[in-house]
Write a protein that binds this DNA or RNA. Structure first.
Lengths: 190, 190, 190, 190
DNA sequence: GATGAATGAGCGTTCATTCAT
DNA sequence: TATGAATGAACGCTCATTCAT
């Protein structure tokens, strides 16, 4: 009825992305309890039953959100420089994200909790976290080799400490900056 | 589990406690999404409508759970000893609880997230956390005065670091012990 | 435990009356849809389960309200005077009641409607209305015999007209006065 | 009852109308107390939850019933003839409806009472009644100008008298015919 | 009498999902 | 692809009623 513009059907991958982002926003605002297919569809301007053409089930949409969310942490580590410089760069980026996009980490915490009861989510999230963990371990090992780490810090445990503190700090984004700065000072020799 | 005292039939404040504990368990197992009045009632062995005799609304039950949960952290700090000893004692207790009752901290994280959208919960939880924060600050201030703190650690920020790390570590209870032990070493001079 | 005052147990017929009046008020305010045993009991200051000691079922309470309500129309006709004077007196009293106690007639209309689906109520209310009808017929017959009625008015139909108009007028109490005054003028020769 | 047109499956605006009529019937039979979404749905042959696809809330359905019910009184006044003829025609139609569809006025009385506690309903019903009132006033004013009204009848009050009597008479449909015939004779000069 | 505890049927509403169009 | 219609299980909550104390 309407003139199809340049042969591209309305929707397509753009719609897919729009839905994922809408779901992300819903999750950030109201958590899993208030994540409703209807609301997500409404934000994109389509009928709530149409959403199932893009994501057969709600779970599929959630998984796409997980993917979209964790993807935002790819390449937060500067590729150049010494191990210490790259570690500092990584932590600085995380700090920035917590302060500048507090909802980003909130969604991650929401997913962490959800993953405890959802094996499918658990596996995906554990996989992504494992990547982060390995990256941190390498950085800390290299820093330790360069004698830049506080004495007695096992790189593996240090990586866990960073992960735990980042996660915990993200629950109170207005205090996260100072907390992570202190952690950095305690961990890295100056 | 409870000794029936002098043949008294079930009911009374014991029922109230049983309901709170049942709700706590449901929350630990399935989060807020799966907290159902019917399940809580079933665990206690009463009809789901009878819950409303004890808790007019679901929210009232949730608040009782918040109270019950946060109350478990009263007096986790030994009353005697030097500031450092008391701080170590406090952290040791937290470590024990995370490892021994992982669901306890999971419920707390669930409540943290929920509190973001529930002003009533937020106020209660913020109040409890403020108590913890003040206690940590005092401990760290005293430890600093005794020269037992790592150099350059502001007691207030140190308290935030402890809070953040404990919260984050509780999301992965099997790694929490090492993480908190490392934090302690970094924070306290040996 | 408390000193029984002059041997009379607390409650008794006074409580019974208080409950009926409370139910009457609830009915006036919210209709049958909002007539709740709990609210009635609360207005009297007793537990909602205690109400069943006075009225085994809700229906029993409703019937008592019917009785209490219709009883307020006994002796609305002056015992002395000519038929016309007594008819005028009767209508004047009804007008006064509609204007002064609008809720009284509202409850009656509520009961009229309810009686359509409740045979027990229907019988009681029909009986009370029959008394009113007979009284009106006698008055109108006597007035007709005295030549005081508008020409062509059959006393029986005239009685029905009065009943219908009073009922309808009571639904808009602020206009009832003028309406009933006009009816009186049309019906009675001056 | 309805002819299925060209094999179209059930649904669409026909469903909407069927639901309104089913609700109307429920209301006529059992009043507001027994108006249940489940019963309405069952009468139409759909699941009770499907109602909400057509009427988001019960109140929306009720309002549609109000509309459907009051709409039945549009154009009950013959467009041609003298004022007296048109007034007689109007009253005759009302009499017919009360006798032929007693439930119609019962529903209206139910709505009158409900409107006392429901501002939304009150406004709608008051608006519809105002139309009726104005129509009656015009008719009576014209009749008065033609000298066809009983002496001393103010058209505005006369209109109220008609409204009140029609409402009251509708509560006892088997007597309504005589009552309204008498009212007509008293009001209109012959 | 009065109460606290419990019951159970039932209510309006929600929501992911299915399916014919 | 998109929609309108429908489903069915589930939810929090209500309320008259029962009964042991």
């Amino acid at each position: 009825m309407a003139t199809t513009r340049r042969g591209r059907p309305p929707g397509g991958p753009e719609r897919w992305n729009a839905l994922v982002q809408a779901a992300y926003r819903c999750l950030a605002e109201g958590g899993f309890e208030r994540l409703r297919m209807r609301d997500v569809a409404a934000q994109v301007g389509i009928d709530h039953s149409s959403i199932h053409h893009h994501f057969p089930t709600k779970q599929d949409l959630v998984i796409a959100v997980v993917d979209h969310t964790t993807r935002q942490f790819w390449s937060t580590t500067p590729p150049e420089g010494s191990a210490v410089e790259r570690l500092r760069g990584h932590l600085a980026t995380l700090r920035q994200k917590i302060v500048g996009q507090p909802e980003l980490h909130i969604v991650l915490r929401e997913l962490d909790l959800r993953a405890r009861r959802d094996p499918e989510l658990r596996e995906i999230i554990a996989g992504r976290e494992e990547g982060w963990r390995n990256s941190l371990r390498t950085l800390l090992t290299d820093a330790a080799a360069a004698g830049a780490l506080a004495p007695g810090v096992d790189p593996a445990t240090g990586a866990e400490l960073v992960i735990a503190t980042v996660k915990g700090a993200s629950l109170a984004s207005d205090r996260a900056d100072d907390v992570l700065e202190l952690l950095e000072r305690l961990l890295i020799r100056t």
